[in-house]
């Protein structure tokens, strides 16, 4: 019954919270937001890809905190690289073999890579096995791949069952 009414509980929660943020916290908007949070996921259900079940919520919180911290440090590092001599940069295209299989998790990983130190995800292969990354300043390919795997891919793999 519950899963019929709320196919995507996290999405519903997010919708409800954004509605309250947009319109201010009051009882009326709380109720209206609640209706929307139930109706919208039901109505758009056919358009959603298979969203994996969240397995480990505390790990997700930790992951979000780690990523935010990395975004801040990444910016300082990138700022220094940008203001320094462009000749010293060692740009590279790197192929990252993926262990994640789920589309949603891969999207999250690609977004995380784009937001963190000197790397932008450029493409995913047709078979979803490899991610193409462009690095602003790469020292050693194996090291970069290992770092991304250890810091972002493994937690994501543990957070979603896939």
């Amino acid at each position: 019954m519950m899963s019929r009414l709320l196919p995507f509980p996290m999405l519903s929660l997010l919708l409800w919270l954004s509605w309250l943020l947009l319109n201010g916290f009051s009882w009326g908007h709380g109720l209206l937001g609640l209706v929307l949070a139930v109706v919208l996921p039901l109505g758009t259900r056919p358009f959603w890809p298979n969203v994996p079940r969240l397995r480990d919520f505390p790990k997700l919180v930790r992951f979000v905190l780690v990523v935010h911290w990395d975004i801040i440090t990444a910016n300082v590092v990138v700022a220094r690289l940008i203001l320094g001599s462009p000749r010293k940069l060692r740009p590279a295209f790197v192929e990252l073999p993926l262990e994640l299989t789920d589309d949603f998790a891969i999207t999250l990983l690609a977004s995380t890579i784009s937001l963190t130190p000197g790397t932008v995800s450029a493409d995913v292969s047709e078979d979803r096995r490899t991610l193409l990354i462009h690095a602003l300043d790469m020292d050693d390919e194996a090291e970069l791949v290992a770092q991304i795997k250890q810091r972002y891919e493994r937690p994501l793999k543990e957070i979603f069952e896939c």
């Binding site: 975004i71 910016n75 990138v78 700022a79 203001l83 462009p86 940069l89 740009p91 932008v120 462009h134």
Partner: peptide, 26 residues
């Protein structure tokens, strides 16, 4: 500003991509 400086002075498109995505967001 740093993000935009990166956009303005880095030598190729792929490098320029790095400035705006990170610095401007921050």
């Amino acid at each position: 500003l740093v993000g935009s400086i990166g956009l303005a002075r880095l030598p190729d498109f792929y490098l320029r991509l790095h400035g705006p995505t990170k610095a401007s967001t921050l």
